[in-house]
């Protein structure tokens, strides 16, 4: 409980900081006035640019952290991450098709909607291939297959692309960013994320029981097929929505559960809310870093995330090897 309160306070602090920092030099007092009153240039910047961006950062980070904790708990593997079931690769395929066909330019939300549709198709395919049982191995294999296939199709589209600009646009999209996102993006992503998070409600007991293995978990009354379905649909909805509005943001779902596992005594159920808050804090912090480190160069969030995430991950492995 104390950990959750601390993480919540950290998120709140970073959220406020994210509202205060940006290329438009606005004083703190003026920022608050603009946020509350909403008039003038400061009001426009605060309400239409920084607020939706900070809200998206918190939502996406929370979704990625929660999904990572759920996937690791379900697969009983600390190396699992939300992209494992192929949803992010499929969302990327949807995005590249939208960019390539020019559909992305048709209206503002064309790209996120295509990405989301592709993610939905992928999850249906995965559930079909993984079969009706509750086993995790079939799920991993199906996820790997769908990931590889979506990746191959993405490469094919780029390969056949007659338009070099489409390819570079896609590459930039893939790097992941929250720049220039609006309330429209929040409106399309938030409901899907909420449905995903709602599916995850109450899975903590099942994940705790899975610590003992699938057989023992089933014997203490956990319905494994139902648990698997909820996790796959929940992760797919949250990660699909996150990827469709912000591109690929890696490492959050992998690193955040690792960082917090020790703090919750290793219990996978208790890790879920902690990882959600931790993920939100991490993405908020990274999105602040993007604006502070190289302002004006449009540094991509996914790039910064990987630059922070990979060394953190190496450090964790190093600690684990020394038996820490």
């Amino acid at each position: 409980m104390r950990l959750l309160a601390a993480l919540g306070a950290l998120c709140a602090g970073l959220f406020v900081a994210a509202l205060m920092i940006g290329p438009a030099q606005i004083g703190i007092a003026e920022s608050f006035r603009g946020l509350l009153a909403g008039d003038g240039a400061a009001g426009l910047v605060m309400r239409e640019i920084r607020l939706p961006r900070a809200v998206l950062a918190a939502l996406i980070g929370g979704c990625l952290g929660l999904s990572g904790a759920a996937m690791q708990g379900y697969l009983r593997n600390p190396l699992a991450e939300p992209g494992l079931i192929g949803v992010s690769a499929a969302a990327a395929l949807g995005a590249v098709i939208a960019i390539q066909t020019g559909f992305a330019a048709a209206f503002a939300l064309a790209l996120p909607l295509s990405a989301l549709a592709a993610a939905l198709l992928a999850v249906l395919l995965i559930l079909f291939m993984a079969g009706p049982g509750g086993g995790s191995l079939a799920l991993i294999l199906a996820g790997v297959a769908v990931s590889a296939f979506a990746g191959a199709l993405t490469s094919l589209v780029l390969n056949l692309s007659p338009n070099p600009f489409a390819a570079s646009e896609f590459v930039f999209w893939m790097m992941g960013s929250l720049a220039d996102r609006s309330w429209l993006h929040v409106v399309i992503a938030a409901p899907v994320m909420a449905v995903g998070a709602a599916m995850m409600w109450g899975i903590g007991r099942g994940l705790d029981a899975l610590t003992l293995g699938e057989d023992a978990a089933a014997s203490i009354g956990i319905g494994l097929p139902g648990l698997r379905l909820r996790i796959v649909l929940g992760v797919a909805a949250m990660v699909g929505a996150a990827t469709s509005v912000a591109g690929a943001i890696g490492f959050v779902g992998l690193v955040v559960p690792h960082l917090l596992r020790g703090r919750v005594g290793g219990r996978p159920g208790a890790l879920l809310p902690a990882a959600a808050l931790g993920g939100a804090a991490m993405v908020l912090a990274a999105d602040i870093a993007v604006r502070l480190v190289l302002p004006g160069r449009d540094l991509k969030l996914g790039v910064v995330m990987a630059l922070i995430g990979a060394p953190v991950f190496l450090h964790l492995i190093w600690q684990q090897r020394r038996g820490g």
Partner: peptide, 12 residues
């Protein structure tokens, strides 16, 4: 049910 595999996935 006590399975033969002595699984304990996390450092709890």
């Amino acid at each position: 049910w006590l399975p033969q595999e002595r699984e304990a996935a996390w450092p709890i």
